[in-house]
Write a protein that binds this DNA or RNA. Structure first.
Lengths: 233, 233
DNA sequence: TCAAAAGTGTTTATACTACACCCATGA
DNA sequence: TCATGGGTGTAGTATAAACACTTTTGA
């Protein structure tokens, strides 16, 4: 089946996280500035080598803890493997990349070398990390439409217009608050908290607060078509 | 950032393929029976070690060639990384799993140790390969609904009722030919070939033949809701 | 009483399903 | 001419967008 002399070379495995959060009305990613070669002064994704006793998801959760409080990470999912033989200089390293989300009300303390950057205007990135960030953004955008993943971007309670801001920032285009409300309500994702939030100085009707009915990811539109007989959304 | 003495251990990386095809009205997967320990006589996925000069996708395509003619594989996509430390006995091996599809009109010659098995009644599988197969089936089912991935299961030309059989087998429930036709036609995926196929001995109107307009995967229902303004399906 | 922001009602368009009905063939 | 399988017409329902209108507040 395989020729051990040519086929099997030991190599290293790393895990990388594209940690996304909506900050200042734009979708941003957590990057740290490399101090040393290779690619010194370029910005790279948090992560590092996989240890012998952990799977990739445990590993990325452990390594993220060096940058942000793990309790502030609301969602973690595998994104893809990046495996081009020359993706990093020197000995070969395969990377498993993750998409991680932080809700908008969190503002984790960051190490000095670490900062948030808008996904739409990334700084000079190291290795293939820029491509990984864009892939993560695309995955998030797709899932906002057919899952309840918005819960991972939002605070525990929020107004519809605040939620609209989050969706608009993540999707990159204006979303209507009216229709967002109706889509999420029809799918049973929104539950009213009963609270309202005070209007700003300019006045206006107080906004009702909502929360997401579930706080783990679920597919809410599983069959765009070709639904099994008898199943209703 | 990382402590080289504890964090970085060399390890092996393998690629595995869940090759799916609709055969005899059921979704089947290509497995080979292990001759040697560990897990002798259990059935496992084709694949093997990643070589130094190839990325994971090149590797799975190369290794599949030992089982089936590569030209018969109509679609290849990354599925997920399987990385539990004890997923295989002995030295640690991380696996990148792929979903691969073979169109229903192909019947590749197989090595003696290799055979097709219905996904719904898998034999005793080796390691975590059973879970990988189920994950591949779920991915295929989801994508049948919002992409044109059906092209990878179907022959170059087909009747709607033949296509209905393929979708029904892959999805695991009966699909209506009428509505399948209209959904795919509305999305512009079907093109008539002009040919018709002869009715069987029992008679019946000759069926028009169609082909898929595209033969590479594209998302056809990108935003179930929350579509950008102005974009129509 | 006016401006601002939130929320609701209503119209229109489209997507999808279900099912009745018509069509073209073999026996 | 009948059984069989293929294909179309059409109505009913669900989904969603657009936009006008009402509600509730601060100044």
């Amino acid at each position: 089946m395989l020729n051990a002399t040519t086929a099997s070379l030991p190599l290293a495995h790393e895990v990388l996280a594209a940690v996304l959060q909506v900050r200042q009305e734009s979708l941003q990613v957590l990057l740290w500035e490399r101090g040393m070669e290779p690619h010194a002064h370029r910005w790279s994704l948090p992560g590092g080598r996989l240890r012998a006793d952990e799977d990739v998801e445990s590993s990325i959760r452990r390594q993220l803890a060096e940058k942000v409080d793990v309790r502030q990470v609301s969602h973690v999912e595998q994104l893809a493997v990046f495996s081009a033989p020359d993706r990093v200089p020197g000995p070969r390293v395969i990377a498993t990349a993750f998409l991680c989300l932080v809700p908008s009300h969190m503002d984790p303390e960051l190490p000095d070398d670490t900062a948030w950057h808008p996904v739409e205007s990334l700084p000079h990135t190291a290795f293939d990390h820029g491509a990984i960030v864009l892939r993560a953004r695309n995955r998030l955008r797709a899932k906002l439409s057919y899952t309840n993943i918005g819960f991972a971007l939002a605070p525990p309670a929020f107004t519809i217009s605040a939620l609209r801001e989050l969706y608009s920032a993540a999707l990159g285009y204006r979303v209507s608050a009216t229709n967002l409300q109706r889509v999420l309500a029809r799918r049973g994702l929104l539950a009213p908290t009963g609270e309202t939030s005070r209007p700003g100085r300019a006045g206006g009707r107080p906004a009702a607060q909502f929360r997401f009915a579930d706080t783990s990811m679920a597919v809410t539109d599983p069959f765009a078509v070709l639904r099994p007989p008898g199943e209703r959304r």
